[in-house]
Lab assay of single mutants.
Amino acid sequence: MDALKSAGRALIRSPSLAKQSWGGGGRHRKLPENWTDTRETLLEGMLFSLKYLGMTLVEQPKGEELSAAAIKRIVATAKASGKKLQKVTLKVSPRGIILTDNLTNQLIENVSIYRISYCTADKMHDKVFAYIAQSQHNQSLECHAFLCTKRKMAQAVTLTVAQAFKVAFEFWQVSKEEKEKRDKASQEGGDVLGARQDCTPPLKSLVATGNLLDLEETAKAPLSTVSANTTNMDEVPRPQALSGSSVVWELDDGLDEAFSRLAQSRTNPQVLDTGLTAQDMHYAQCLSPVDWDKPDSSGTEQDDLFSF
């Protein structure tokens, strides 16, 4: 819950932080000083300027060897085509990944977070970031790969997607708890209302004896509580940590079903599988986004697919 609360507080303090972009060759504004600060901008989305290598189908939802083989196929196909790589912007948030063309600003792909089953910074092609997700059109699994400016960037994108998945799962947990509370309150309110109706004398007997209905007592009954809980029953509950912020979080049926399955089948359902080692994760978390744009010590960066 700490990640969720800190993310909400950060967004309320400075929503404009989320509009910064990394990996864009110096076009961005001043960047936060450390990885923790940038992680807090996830709610509205972190932007990464990358190059799209392509996509291939895979048979399993996750796995280092599986993704490595898929990336190898994608890279080989991209090299064989001889075409310049498409420059894209990857927007990562707890909602998922939005992929747009840098030149036309046209939407290429919009992947809900619950469809993503794996992401990684490839070991062999260490400047490549990739994720595996279920197609929104059918049940097939797709591996999408992107060329980053350097290994640090690939690791940073991988960690960002993993963190977005974690925050999304926490949102789901909060929403589920809130819905259970509202359902319980609604049920209790309905029981109270039913009890009051059972003990209320029939209207005919009131008229016969000349008694008047006590409207004041009726007004004191917990009807307002019942209506408050039943009027918006169809509205999706939102985490309290975000009250007053500009973010509107809505959970669709697909996300609810997917996270429910994860909660039942996995020990740590909030953790998205990645190909990063503990050492890689520690190294990337210690980086400032400013470091992502620094040239690798191995030599001059080449803006070309064939540089790796």
Rank of each mutant, 00 (worst) to 15 (best):
E177V: 13
K79A: 10
V92H: 13
S6I: 10
T100M: 14
Q134M: 12
V157C: 01
G63L: 05
L50G: 11
S93M: 12
A156N: 01
T41D: 01
R238K: 06
A219L: 01
K127D: 11
T218Y: 03
C286M: 07
N102H: 11
R29V: 06
G82I: 03
N229H: 03
I71Q: 03
M124I: 05
K83G: 07
V226R: 06
L305I: 15
A156I: 09
R115C: 10
N102W: 04
M233I: 14
K123Q: 13
C119M: 00
P94K: 07
M46D: 08
Q106T: 13
Y52D: 06
D291W: 08
D252F: 06
A228Q: 04
E235V: 09
H144A: 13
A70D: 13
L53K: 08
L103D: 00
K152D: 08
H282C: 01
S135D: 07
I71T: 09
L141W: 04
R73M: 15
G96F: 09
L223M: 09
C143F: 15
D256M: 09
L47P: 11
K30Q: 14
H282V: 08
S298C: 07
Y52H: 05
K220Q: 11
K152P: 00
P202Q: 02
V226E: 09
S135T: 05
L141R: 09
Q270D: 05
S224R: 00
W22S: 12
A130Y: 11
F48Y: 14
T225S: 12
V207Y: 02
L203F: 11
K127R: 12
L66F: 03
H144P: 13
W35V: 14
T149R: 08
Q264W: 07
G24D: 12
K62D: 05
G63Q: 10
S307A: 09
V207S: 06
S246N: 12
R9H: 09
S297R: 05
D253M: 07
L215V: 14
T225M: 12
S49A: 11
L4D: 02
P61A: 09
G23H: 07
S288C: 01
A284Q: 00
L90S: 15
Q302V: 10
S140A: 08
E188D: 14
S265Y: 10
E217N: 03
M124L: 12
D252Q: 07
K220M: 04
A145C: 14
H125E: 11
P289D: 08
L141I: 09
A145I: 14
L103Y: 02
R151W: 12
S265C: 00
S246K: 00
K84G: 13
G275E: 01
G54I: 05
F146G: 09
S112Q: 06
V167K: 01
D37P: 10
T225A: 11
N268L: 00
D198M: 10
L255G: 14
M55E: 06
L31W: 13
K204Y: 04
L212E: 00
L203P: 08
S14G: 10
G244F: 03
D296V: 03
A18H: 05
K179L: 12
L251F: 02
D273P: 08
K294Y: 09
